[in-house]
Design a protein around this nucleic acid. Sequence first.
DNA 1: GCCTGCGGGTGTT
DNA 2: AACACCCGCAGGC
Length: 433
Amino acid sequence: MEPENADSADKELSWDINDMKLPQNVKKTDWFQEWPDAYEKHIYSSDDRNAQRHLSSWAMRNTNNHNSRILKKSCLGVVVCGRDCSVAEGRKVYLRPAICDKARQKQQRKRCPNCDGPLKLIPCRGHGGFPVTNFWRHDGRFIFFQSKGEHDHPKPETKLEAEARRAVKKTHSASSSVSSKLKQSPDIKPLPGETQSWESLTWSFQEAVQLPPSYSGHVIGYTPQQKAWNDGSSFPESYGLGGTSELANLTPTLGPPQLYDKWDLSHSRVSSSGDLLQPSISGVFSDYSDLQTWNKNVALGRSPLNDNSCPSYPFPLASWPYDFSSSQSSSEPFHQPVPVEPAAAKSSYPPIWPNQGGELYEEKVPVDFNSYHPPTTCHSPQEDPVLLTHTSQPYHQYALPGKSNKWDFDEEMGCLGLDHCNNEMLLNLCPLR
DNA sequence: GCCTGCGGGTGTT
DNA sequence: AACACCCGCAGGC
């Protein structure tokens, strides 16, 4: 799989998911995109298991479009702590909204694993005030994907992370039960925290992770169209590539491993119709692909030249040992321009919040982020125009949709890069034995 | 229990 | 007509 040249890429992008006939002369298919954002189109091989399953790391739920040929999904957003609590280093809680309506309602009744505060669903409003939608269509030997809208919220846990968290929680509950029965035995000593809740274990781990020396939060001022709410927890990394774990056995596989050897070369084109470029952006980036390229890199929190570096991570509750047999790849263009600080577009965008009626999103004004003051350790893109591109260290940054925006992010510090380097530490801390 | 896909149905624009 | 969204159902894990 090689990068497309521009001409063939353009040709293959000249389709819409609603077209009667979709191109069948596709020469190159895309690597599966874990975090499709913006107005992307991708053509996957019908053999791509992730595509077959219509997977996304965004929490997408099925939406009935009364068209059996085109599967439509809409984004559920992200579940955050209603108190906007932080753990060490300002990491935030970004849980994956349950897809099932009932499960989601149940989820919202639960408490923040960090501060026991209420959880709050931040709905996605990235598509004209409505959730971002993804469309899937199987046609011939290909699976066509099209996304509409740009996510205006942080990335939630991935599906596997959420599943792993449940599995761990379940396992821990069981082990706690067992350990309580066996606690008289001198041979079986619980690890520190083993008698605590699973959440506290997780947080203990999170807090135990040392930030890399170069860690710093970055405030990136630009519009939601340009936003990168958080890092890219791209599969091979966030799923524990390089780590080993018993926990991996608890997680389902997302796909075959055959693509992993290609991951760090990630040559998939990031395609876009480009026709929805906002005027406020156009003066900043020479074209949409530049913008998107930059977006992607920023979102991924890494340099395209060191894709195999540690990613940043949006406070995963379970950002560890995954079965990385998945073929997920956060494929990015290989040649990236050094991003230009798009601060000019920063304030031109209206506030996304308050919420306009998101499900179970009760507070009209979610969290007062206006009081946020960047930590002194955080330098702005103006200070560091290279942003994340010249470091292999995981860290995290956020966009500032606008000064008036309620998501005036303190989340910009909201992610600690948890990577496979830390997985073993987690494993050592994890009571699962 | 939850995810996923399907499809009937309703309300809005 | 297009779209968002609610709901229930069924299959699968």
